[in-house]
């Protein structure tokens, strides 16, 4: 009897074997291509200023030194920066996710009365905005300039993310569930809370990650709205450190000092990257847990 090509635990057909081989090779190459510059960045951050700016670092640290890190951590503002960023990230993300869900769910219901209207209202803001001046004036009038609220209330809903969530609700939650729930007498809000949200862990994970990372990396809003140093997020502080390291020739006439300073900024750039990235890197594995394969609790069929 001809052996049917099946992919099962006993043996792989040739087609499958080739495919897996190709995939593994490609992934291997990808890892090398992506990892090399990352290793380079870390190595640079642990090298001396002169080695980095002279471009002597190829793969491993040259003239191992902690200068970059030392300079950064000596600066006390860095710690306030960390605290502020964590605060903004956690609070703002929570706010974002709640608001986004509240907008995405109704829009995912095809029969929702206001679907077309609301969607249009949201889409328009993707393209047209008043610009920074009227936004600033508005916030001045609301007396939230130079307060934490200015950061929390800017960009609280990303239409992009909302659409992602809406699409997910539409495509991944079967319509039958809604019918069944209706029969059981559950209201819309109840349905959202008890059925949709638990089933959407994957998209919540993704959207939370998107918002969190955006907040972690942001500096523009803080630059615009904050004047009080104690409210500065990490990125703003790090940028200031980097700017300060850029040598202004007209200040100094002594060549010795010039030389001391000119190497520092290059290595600091890399240390700053490592410092501001490491916390975020820890986030992904946590988020990844929610991407489990096919989860459909309980059967609704029949």
């Amino acid at each position: 009897m001809k052996r049917k090509k099946r992919a099962n635990a006993i043996g792989l057909c040739t087609e499958d074997r080739i495919m897996y081989a190709v995939v593994y090779v490609l992934m291997g190459l990808l890892i090398v291509v992506i990892a090399y510059p990352l290793v380079y960045v870390v190595s640079c951050s642990f090298s001396s200023g002169n080695a980095v700016s002279a471009g002597r670092v190829l793969l491993w640290p040259v003239e191992f030194s902690l200068t970059g890190y030392r300079i950064v951590f000596n600066y006390k503002q860095v710690w306030t920066g960390y605290y502020n960023t964590i605060f903004y990230t956690v609070t703002a993300t929570a706010l974002n996710v709640v608001l986004t869900t509240m907008a995405a769910y109704p829009l995912s219901r095809k029969n929702f009365q206001g679907r077309k209207l609301c969607m249009t209202l949201f889409m328009v803001t993707m393209f047209f905005s008043g610009g920074i001046i009227p936004s600033y004036i508005l916030k001045t009038q609301l007396h939230i300039v130079n307060t934490r609220w200015a950061i929390l209330l800017t960009g609280s809903i990303s239409v992009y993310n909302m659409v992602v969530m809406r699409t997910f609700f539409q495509n991944s939650i079967p319509g039958d569930l809604l019918e069944a729930a209706r029969l059981d007498g559950i209201s819309d809000i109840g349905y959202l809370l008890r059925i949709v949200i638990p089933l959407s862990k994957a998209v919540f994970a993704v959207i939370t990650l998107y918002y969190a990372v955006a907040h972690w990396n942001s500096y523009f809003n803080a630059m615009m709205y904050l004047r009080d140093r104690n409210l500065y997020p990490l990125q703003l502080v790090l940028r200031d450190i980097l700017n300060a390291a850029n040598v202004d020739l007209s200040q100094i006439s002594d060549p010795e000092i010039l030389r001391q300073l000119s190497g520092a900024s290059d290595v600091m750039r890399y240390s700053l990257i490592v410092i501001s990235t490491v916390p975020m890197m820890a986030a992904y594995p946590i988020v990844q847990k929610y991407f489990k394969q096919g989860v459909m609790i309980g059967s609704v069929k029949g």
Binding site: Y136, K139, T140, M223, M224, L236, R239, N243
Partner: peptide, 20 residues
């Protein structure tokens, strides 16, 4: 305090002025 980057400093100043 203002930003340490030229373009941002200019923006901040003009925003302060615009916002009265």
């Amino acid at each position: 305090y203002f930003s340490s980057t030229s373009s941002e400093y200019a923006t901040q100043l003009s925003l302060m002025v615009a916002g009265g």
